[in-house]
Design a protein around this nucleic acid. Sequence first.
DNA 1: TTTATTGTTAAGCATGTACTTAAGTATTCC
DNA 2: GGAATACTTAAGTACATGCTTAACAATAAA
Lengths: 111, 111
Amino acid sequence: MLNNKLDKAFAALADPARRAMVERLVIGPATVSELAVPLPMSLPAVMLHLKVLEDAGLVTSRKEGRVRTCRIDPEKLSLAERWVSARRVMWEHSLDGLNAYLDQTKAEDEK
Amino acid sequence: MLNNKLDKAFAALADPARRAMVERLVIGPATVSELAVPLPMSLPAVMLHLKVLEDAGLVTSRKEGRVRTCRIDPEKLSLAERWVSARRVMWEHSLDGLNAYLDQTKAEDEK
DNA sequence: TTTATTGTTAAGCATGTACTTAAGTATTCC
DNA sequence: GGAATACTTAAGTACATGCTTAACAATAAA
């Protein structure tokens, strides 16, 4: 059912086509056709990917005339980022992570 | 086909059961049964999730006797983190992101 | 050596995902 | 008005995902 926001955000980012769309949109807004150009698929398929991105809250779009313009909404992007970051930091503060850190420090001393 | 490492990492993190397993493992290593306790599903289902996490490189495990011990491998975790972070930063440096930043700054001035 | 524990494999099922082509709608241009 | 553009919807197909229960190791404990 994908209720959770994180579920949707991570699931959206799991697809290379959708990541490519995000990569394009971080540069600036784009139309649906512009997003579709580099992608090896039909326009309806791109629409579906766009819908997934919008549903995850990563992208918003607005239609003016016959053109739909899409842009990044970076809040959800940072939501996903913060989840991963917080867990990595937690791990680093655990005994396991501490040992890994010490091993790494030791390895660097021996260089 | 999920060839890409990022595909697998994001897809693995898109499931709440798997994120719960990661949350448990950042505290320290755990057995399969320990990971299964809080999860509302059968042990074989947990095994499948574990396999997905291992396949994504987020988790490693080793069997000693009849017990399999699992632990986090934070390298792939930071791989996903860095992808998101880099895109957010790129967006912030774009005209769109710059405007959002300025709007936010203005809003905070008015507080 | 029987029994309990811990994990693994197999088979099956229901649902979701990622497309496709074809047809349709709404705008804009000529 | 008629044609081109930019998307949108519908219908259908193929494959992947997320479980289940049942049966089967392998190891450890009594």
